[in-house]
């Protein structure tokens, strides 16, 4: 209810990795102004139908929802290059299952852009029925893009895979949201797909990945990104 606290805030938030300047937005996109490049991760397209094939008939609208959001973000940032950081498709047949109307929508978005599909564990093969370039890893300047983050010290890694989520507790309540997590040398992206959940950054999967004192989460609020120091985050 404290609406006025939030009113005047700039929705996006600036951050640096390996000295390069990036901007993250409250919808889970990372923008690199220098390269006019937009980075998204873990779209998990056709997750709904993947579940349906195994007997859980959850709504088939996840691809539509994810693509609509993506379309809106592309309209906002107008990037020349788009990097999808892996697990873009929920399983290896997912790209073929995309209903035609959404396939057309996606193709239209890709048109006139450099589109890079980084391979993930869910989608080890590039989609046969879509344009774009595929890669296991991609290096641009000091930055290396890959799906699964490496362990140990990094210098300029941007990865996905882990679906980070941050949780804070204050005044007897807790709030849990998707987030970017990083320490200036490595950044892990939130998942973008409409049916993707989050993994608490206090989970052991994140162990040893960041320098604790420099570690921040950029937490996705309803309309803003909030930069919060990792020491404030709880399990």
């Amino acid at each position: 209810m404290t609406a006025d606290l939030l009113e005047q805030r700039e929705p996006n938030c600036a951050l640096q990795i390996a000295g390069e300047a990036f901007i993250c937005d409250p919808f889970g996109c990372l923008y690199w102004p220098e390269e006019n490049c937009l980075i998204i991760s873990d779209l998990h397209l056709e997750k709904g139908s993947s579940f349906a094939s195994r007997g859980r008939l959850i709504p088939p609208y996840d691809t539509a929802a994810t693509l609509n959001m993506l379309e809106q973000r592309l309209e906002y940032w107008r990037p020349k290059t788009v990097i999808s950081l892996g697990d873009s498709f929920h399983d290896k047949n997912a790209a073929e299952r995309i209903p035609q109307q959404y396939h057309l929508q996606l193709s239209a978005m890709m048109k006139g852009r450099n589109w890079i599909w980084i391979q993930g564990n869910h989608d080890p093969l590039a989609p046969a029925n879509l344009e774009g370039q595929d890669a296991t890893e991609l290096a641009i300047g000091p930055i290396i893009f890959r799906h699964e983050p490496h362990s140990g010290p990094s210098n300029g890694e941007i990865a996905g895979h882990l679906h980070p989520a941050a949780k804070i507790k204050r005044r007897g309540s807790s709030v849990r949201r998707r987030c970017f997590i990083g320490d200036g040398t490595r950044l892990i992206m939130p998942s973008f797909g409409s049916f993707t959940g989050g993994l608490n950054i206090r989970d052991r999967a994140f162990n040893g990945m960041f320098l604790e004192s420099d570690q921040y989460a950029w937490v996705m609020g309803q309309n803003n990104v909030f930069q919060i120091h990792a020491r404030q985050l709880v399990r």
């Binding site: 209810m1 005044r171 609020g221 309803q222 803003n224 909030f226």
Partner: peptide, 19 residues
């Protein structure tokens, strides 16, 4: 009373202000 909904963003904001 506990809080929920919109007020959650206010809590995030508070945590961010502490920076």
């Amino acid at each position: 009373e506990g809080i929920a909904g919109e007020a959650q963003d206010a809590l995030l904001s508070e945590a961010a202000e502490e920076l």
